[in-house]
Structure formats: structure tokens, C-alpha cells
């Protein structure tokens, strides 16, 4: 280590202006909290539940400031994942509960993982609406059947809905479907979670885009209006480009753009197509 050259910034013989510039560059500070949150949302399929329930604690040697920032960020991530889990639970509720009709459908599904939560606060309906970009639904049929996702699903026709004659809470899944005309998303017990499915697709994108595309399509079948539907479309379009299927990629991008003209994922899609 002693024979290393003196760093320019510390070298009294170096150009003073260069030293000052290096100091300025080292001292530059960025408020990257929002960027890191965006990144965490994008990486959601890979991040999984935050810290295995470990909350916001950062690594032991992380500087205090970084740890505080990370903790704040992680609390937001945890909240996002918790919200996603709640949304997922609502979306799969009818299908999971195939037992005879009960009056307690809005209970936590037994097979769903415990939604990770930030320590402080439960997720309210209002938060749910604000995060997903939808107004909280007052329609029990919509809420229970999970028929109205946070955004229209690309390529899927919006199901028409009849007013139920009886409160949907009192119906079993087949009854809900028969009564409302809504076909609930089919989530079978052995189907991986959205995060696992898209994480696999994302990891394989470079090495095996065909498999990544297949995984994205699988996600589309099982979670047509899932919380990560936007991410799925980005992955699918990326995979199509990598497979040389540019026309298909552009067509899929057009459908996505038409369905979600203000989606933040559009910029990424444009970049993928530009490459």
C-alpha cells in the first residue's frame, strides 16, 4: 500500500485547479432517495420480501447517514411490498377460497405469505389507492373478485359485470363468477408468486431471452392484471428485441402505450426499442 502513488487530490505538486476539481467531485452529494425507491420498485422481483423481515437495518458497517437513508428507503419498499401483497391477496382471494360459501371472505388467504410490513403502520385503503393509482373501490364485487386491477391489463378485454343479486361477500368463487360474470385470476397453489416468476424472467433475460419471454407469458396467464404487469411487459418487450422479433416487440409496445399512456415504464420500453 505504501508504494502506491500519491493521489492527485493530496499531491501538493499537482495542479491546484485539478486538485480542487477532484475535491469538488468527491464532495458532490446527491439526494438519491427517490431514485433508489424507483430502483427498488423495478427490482422488486429480485428483492423479494425486504430483509427477510429484518426491517430497515442496514449492514453493520454502513455509515450512519447511509443507514438512515437506506432505512427510510427500505421502509418505503417494505410498504410497497406490503401493499403489493395485500393487492395480491385481494386479487387471488376468490380463487384461493374454494370452500363452501362463508361470510368471511375478506380474511387473509391461508396459502399466501405473511405480507412484510414496515414496522410502523398498517396499509390503509387510502394508501392502497394512492399507490396503485386507482381510487379505492367501493364496489364489493370489484374488490372481492379482484376484477378491476390498478390499471387495465394490456391486451385483455375488460370483463363486463352484472350487478350481483346478493352481496358478493356471501358467495364462493364459482358463485361469484356466475353472479358477476367476472372470471377471477386463476392462481393455483403450485404457481410461483409474481415476484418469483418475474425475478426468474429478469435474471434470464440476457442469457436466455426465449425462456424469459416464456416466463413473462406465464406471468400474463396467471397474473394478467398483477401488480407487476408493467414490469412483465418491459421484460417481454426486451426479450422479443433480444430474440430479433422487433415487429412483435413494437406491436406489444404499442399496445402497452395505448393502454398506459402515462406509465413510467414507457421510457424504458422506448430505450429498449431504440437499442
Amino acid at each position: 500500500m505504501n508504494d502506491e502513488p500519491v493521489r492527485l487530490r493530496l499531491d501538493p505538486e499537482a495542479d491546484p485547479e485539478l486538485r480542487a476539481s477532484l475535491d469538488a467531485m468527491r464532495d458532490e452529494r446527491h439526494d438519491d432517495d427517490a431514485r433508489i425507491e424507483r430502483l427498488a420498485m423495478r427490482l422488486g422481483p429480485l428483492l423479494g420480501p425486504p430483509g427477510g423481515g429484518g426491517g430497515g437495518g442496514a449492514g453493520p458497517a454502513v455509515k450512519a447517514a447511509s443507514a438512515a437513508k437506506a432505512a427510510t428507503t427500505w421502509a418505503s419498499i417494505a410498504k410497497g411490498v406490503a401493499i403489493a401483497a395485500v393487492i395480491g391477496a385481494a386479487g387471488t382471494l376468490v380463487v384461493v377460497d374454494r370452500r363452501p360459501a362463508t361470510t368471511t371472505i375478506p380474511s387473509a388467504p391461508t396459502s399466501a405469505p405473511e405480507p412484510p410490513r414496515s414496522a410502523e403502520e398498517p396499509v390503509s385503503e387510502a394508501q392502497l389507492g394512492s399507490v396503485t393509482g386507482t381510487e379505492p373501490s367501493e364496489d364489493p364485487a370489484s374488490a372481492a373478485a379482484g376484477s378491476e386491477p390498478s390499471r387495465a391489463h394490456v391486451g385483455s378485454a375488460r370483463p363486463t359485470r352484472r350487478e350481483p343479486a346478493v352481496p358478493v361477500e356471501l358467495l364462493s368463487a364459482p358463485q361469484v363468477e356466475a353472479t358477476t360474470g367476472v372470471v377471477p385470476e386463476v392462481v393455483e397453489p403450485d404457481v410461483p408468486s409474481e415476484a418469483v416468476m418475474l425475478g426468474s424472467a429478469m435474471r434470464g433475460l440476457r442469457s436466455d431471452p426465449a425462456a424469459a419471454l416464456a416466463e413473462a407469458e406465464r406471468h400474463a396467464r396467471h397474473y394478467p392484471s398483477g401488480t407487476m404487469a408493467d414490469e412483465r411487459e418491459v421484460i417481454a418487450i426486451d426479450a422479443l428485441v433480444r430474440l430479433g422479433r422487433r415487429a412483435d416487440a413494437e406491436a406489444r409496445a404499442t399496445r402497452f402505450r395505448d393502454a398506459h399512456p402515462s406509465s413510467p415504464s414507457l421510457r424504458r420500453i422506448e430505450r429498449i426499442l431504440a437499442n
Partner: peptide, 19 residues
């Protein structure tokens, strides 16, 4: 900045290394 991790948990790595 030095970041030590006791386990290679990706979530922790992300938190530690994003900045």
C-alpha cells in the same frame, strides 16, 4: 465507504450499495 455484509442477502446488498 465500506460496507460489510454478514450474509449475501440481495435486499441488504441493494440497500448498502445503491448509493
Amino acid at each position: 465507504q465500506t460496507v460489510a455484509t454478514s450474509t449475501l442477502d440481495f435486499g441488504q446488498l441493494f440497500r448498502s450499495y445503491a448509493p
